[in-house]
Nucleic acid binder design. Structure first.
Length: 603
DNA sequence: TGTCAAGGCCAA
DNA sequence: TTGGCCTTGACA
């Protein structure tokens, strides 16, 4: 029924000596193709295998991609989930599967797969574990969920996955999957499908180049310092979590104890679970149970389906008090929004040297002159949330990784931005009254334009930098987000930005233009065109009046702004094309809202 | 000199 | 073929 689109491409271990010869082995089984390019010869011949003396193995795992159909509406889902059980697991999956089958919904994402498990948030530690004795933490192998034995080939894994990865790379094994390349890998089933196991090893970040070409024993490799930093960070994080757990135990427990019959301080706490983004690695877990990303984003799935789906994804949870009481603690990035805490778990805006958001009112001329419509628009803008989501994602994605694929990371950020965009739209005037079918069509038509526009807005009005340093030391090109991954569009992007700056493009202009992009009555196939047209015209009229009233010194600002939109669209279209090609090449994460949007236009 | 992440060995 | 344990050796 559901056909899972899985494709991945990994190219690492490019360290073959210049004299090496290259052989290529291709093994095809039905629609599965696994190509192993082997750099033979004298790889690692000089010196040790350290510092990149990898085996020079380029592995491409690919298959024909089939599109995920957009799941059609069932019912509006309430993402607030009440856990009435006494036991609340605070268990966090590394990527996805580690915590699968553990009860799913009652879990709080704190960024990695430490276990802080219930009842009553007992922090699980075991004195027998190597990490426990030093760090007070226990971790699970991101591949199979077994206990980790240390850092192996780039990250913390168990002994068996270490051995499996080593044997596979050293012996240039070629596996095929007899199923659909989406086998679930856990401790009990890891032996069943080596193809999927190896694929998962690569997905979670095990490094081909860490396997030594010369098989030299002992010593250290280039990952040593990263392991060290990682370890220090985990230790700090663990302490932070212990504090958080204590806060929860004391704070929320005290607050609600009197009203709860439960012995647990967590009794009846509402756990609001937000879909963050579908993780690439979640592809290995029962894809048939996953609703379409856009369906999830638009709230089109039944609670049952969603429950199953979210348990397969990396959740970002908020814990909120009952009856809307402000929470004592908010999970992940929301925690840092109003906090000066320099948690190792957070990449706060401060860490990123991201300037404080300018309040909307500060960058619009005079709010008294604007129409109530525009005032409402502006008031609804939540740039702080945008920033926090961005940096929250960047930190969570790089937390346990020594090195991440920056393109993949960019796709994930874009995907998250898309989710925010959908969320914004579905709560917006005019749009929210439309049927889901129409909503989807409008979004599918405008998402990329709006992403580019959002980025321009963040740069112009919130001083979003063009680059940031990730936790693992890698530089992440934020500007690339605005270019949808096409560096050559930089001049085009700057040109558009310059023109808007010249027109004193402000936040009111931005939000109105965004509405105009969204409420495009010319989109084919929409059933309630009149409503869309009405919305479009009202916004257009409001913007016109606003520009005339507040920017009388800029001649024809309104029309000049509208003239820039085709340029914006052209840039976004080129970005879309680029992303689509990357996706077809297997270089972009699949099963994401982003990819579904890319596919939607090509239906 | 201790640590720990490589590779190696070998029973299951 | 797997996976637990052993050996090795650069580095702090």
């Amino acid at each position: 029924m559901h056909q899972e689109a899985t494709s991945m491409s990994v190219q690492q271990g490019t360290v073959a000596a210049s004299t090496s010869t290259q052989t290529t082995t291709t093994v095809a089984a039905e629609d599965t193709v696994m190509v192993v390019h082997q750099n033979g010869g004298g790889g690692g011949g000089e010196g040790s295998g350290d510092d990149g003396g990898g085996v020079g193995l380029d592995v491409t795992v690919s298959n024909a991609t089939t599109q995920t159909p957009v799941t059609m509406a069932l019912e509006e889902v309430n993402l607030e989930i009440t856990d009435d059980n006494d036991n609340v697991d605070l268990e966090v999956p590394f990527t996805n599967n580690a915590a699968e089958g553990s009860g799913g919904l009652s879990s709080v994402d704190m960024g990695t797969n430490y276990q802080i498990s219930g009842p009553a948030t007992t922090i699980t530690t075991s004195a027998s574990d190597p990490l426990d004795t030093k760090d007070g933490i226990e971790e699970l192998c991101p591949v199979c969920g077994d206990k980790v034995s240390g850092y192996h080939y780039g990250l913390l894994t168990c002994e068996s996955c270490k051995g499996f990865f080593k044997r596979t790379v050293q012996n240039k094994k070629v596996y095929t999957c007899v199923a659909e390349r989406s086998c679930h890998i856990d401790k009990t089933q890891r032996k069943r499908c080596p193809f999927c196991r190896f694929q998962k090893c690569l997905e979670v970040g095990m490094k081909l180049e860490a396997v030594r070409a010369d098989r030299m024993r002992g010593g250290r490799n280039k990952f040593g310092p990263m392991y060290k930093r990682d370890r220090a960070r985990k230790l700090q994080m663990m302490r932070q979590r212990q504090l958080a757990a204590q806060t929860l135990r004391g704070g929320i427990g005290d607050m609600y104890q009197s009203s709860q019959s439960s012995s647990s301080p967590f009794g009846n706490i509402h756990i609001k679970q937000e879909i963050q983004i579908p993780q690439v690695s979640s592809l290995t877990s029962s894809p048939d149970s996953s609703p379409s990303p856009i369906a999830v984003a638009l709230g089109q799935v039944s609670s049952n389906t969603l429950s199953q789906a979210v348990s397969n994804q990396q959740p970002a949870l908020q814990i909120v008090g009952v009856q809307g009481t402000p929470s004592m603690m908010m999970a992940d990035n929301k925690l840092w929004a109003n906090s000066t805490t320099t948690s190792p778990h957070s990449l706060s805006p401060k860490t990123f040297q991201f300037d404080t958001v300018v309040p909307p009112s500060a960058s619009v001329p005079t709010s008294s002159k604007m129409s109530p419509l525009i005032r409402d628009f502006v008031e609804a803008i939540d740039d702080r949330e945008w920033q926090n989501s961005l940096y929250g994602l960047l930190q969570s994605q790089t937390y346990n990784q020594c090195e991440v694929d920056l393109f993949e990371l960019m796709c994930k950020v874009l995907d998250q931005n898309l989710f925010s965009q959908v969320d914004w739209a579905r709560n917006s005037i005019f749009f929210k009254d439309l049927k889901v079918d129409d909503q989807m069509k409008l979004l599918q038509h405008s998402w990329s334009d709006m992403l580019v526009l959002d980025h321009i807005h963040q740069r112009m009005h919130n001083n979003l930098p063009d680059e940031t340093t990730l936790h693992n030391g890698q530089k992440f090109d934020l500007l690339n987000l605005g270019l949808l991954g096409v560096p050559t569009l930089i001049d085009h992007f700057n040109d558009i930005t310059a023109k808007l700056q010249e027109l004193k493009f402000d936040i009111s202009d931005y939000i109105c233009i965004k509405f105009l992009l969204l409420l495009n009555p010319d989109v084919r196939g929409i059933t309630n065109r009149k409503h869309v047209q009405d919305g479009f015209e009202q916004v257009q009229q409001a913007l016109l009046e606003y520009t005339v009233t507040c920017y009388s010194n800029i001649q024809d600002k309104f029309n000049k702004m509208l003239q820039i939109l085709p340029e914006l669209h052209s840039l976004a279209a080129r970005g879309e094309e680029h992303l689509y090609l990357k996706h077809c090449n297997g270089s972009a994460p699949t099963q994401t809202l982003l990819m579904e949007m890319l596919h939607a236009k090509r239906k």
